[in-house]
């Protein structure tokens, strides 16, 4: 019994220490508020100011209204996640650029659905927004890669437009995607990244070879059709690769989609990602 009591005592102390440590770790984000320009990154207060600047004077938002939610890590870098109400913003910690803005949607419950704005009008809105917020939009060779109206049934309708920089026949990581509410033309989301391209843009693997490699990943697929585009990708931290993005479709089997996406390294033919359909 003595031994048991001793172990229970030790267990209790350990659990108590763990529980006490949680609030401390949860608060550690706030402590970072005072962080300034260490490791070449901007501070949180500077990031908040950037959101204020991004939203413009119309919204009359103050830096103090913006909350720090944490850091968001992706293969292409780390951002501060900030919120204003329930609107969300990711600010790149190195460049201070807004890389994601999402405006919380409270779609009115229409008795009769209003008509939607035209694709041309929505595109003009999105392009003007991109030109205003993406520093080098007009200076880079930005090509439209996406232009689509989505009918989400109960979720309403929206457009998504995407542009990517084209260089030497490849799409780079410099891209902008904008979602526009199809009823009122308001921006729903803005995603943008700009990076210095460090990989070669000259493929060593022919497109037809990449397609053959990709199709070969799908065992038993029948009547495969495929299309491929050359893009710079970054799926591992700060590692850029030139890849053929190959989309493969086969005949449906038991009415289930067959195929998927394969990323083939355009310099050496390695399969970077085999990504079948669900």
């Amino acid at each position: 019994m003595k031994l048991l009591t001793k172990w229970i005592f030790v267990f209790t102390i350990c659990v108590s220490l763990i529980m006490i440590s949680f609030p401390a770790s949860a608060l550690s984000g706030n402590a970072a508020n005072d962080q300034i320009n260490t490791e070449n990154k901007i501070g949180i207060n500077a990031a908040k100011d950037r959101v204020v600047q991004y939203l413009g004077t119309d919204r009359a938002v103050k830096s103090g209204d913006i909350q720090y939610r944490g850091d968001v890590k992706s293969p292409m870098g780390t951002s501060y996640s900030l919120s204003h109400g329930k609107d969300l913003f990711y600010i790149n910690q190195e460049t201070g650029e807004v890389e994601l803005a999402y405006f919380y949607q409270t779609l009115p419950e229409y008795k009769v659905l209003p008509s939607i704005i035209s694709a041309e009008k929505a595109e003009a809105i999105a392009k003007a927004y991109a030109e205003k917020n993406y520093q080098n939009f007009s200076r880079k060779n930005m090509q439209m890669i996406m232009n689509r109206l989505y009918d989400r049934s109960a979720g309403g309708q929206d457009y998504i437009f995407g542009w990517a920089e084209e260089d030497s026949g490849a799409y780079t990581l410099n891209r902008v995607y904008i979602s526009v509410n199809a009823y009122d033309g308001n921006i729903i989301s803005y995603l943008a990244k700009e990076r210095t391209i460090t990989t070669s843009l000259t493929p060593e693997i022919e497109k037809t070879d990449a397609i053959a490699i990709a199709i070969g990943q799908f065992e038993g697929i029948t009547s495969p059709r495929a299309e491929a585009t050359l893009s710079v990708i970054c799926l591992e931290t700060d590692i850029q690769r030139l890849a053929w993005l190959v989309n493969v479709h086969g005949d449906r089997k038991d009415d289930i989609a067959q195929g998927g996406e394969v990323l083939v390294d355009a310099l050496n033919g390695e399969v970077i990602l085999f990504n079948p359909f669900n």
């Binding site: 992706s74 890389e99 049934s153 979602s179 990244k193 893009s231 799926l235």
Partner: peptide, 22 residues
Amino acid sequence: NMAQADTLSSYWYAYGGIDTMT
């Protein structure tokens, strides 16, 4: 919607079809 945006932000080359949410 936010999940869709985060997905593209992480797979910065294609939505992989999740843009067709309904």
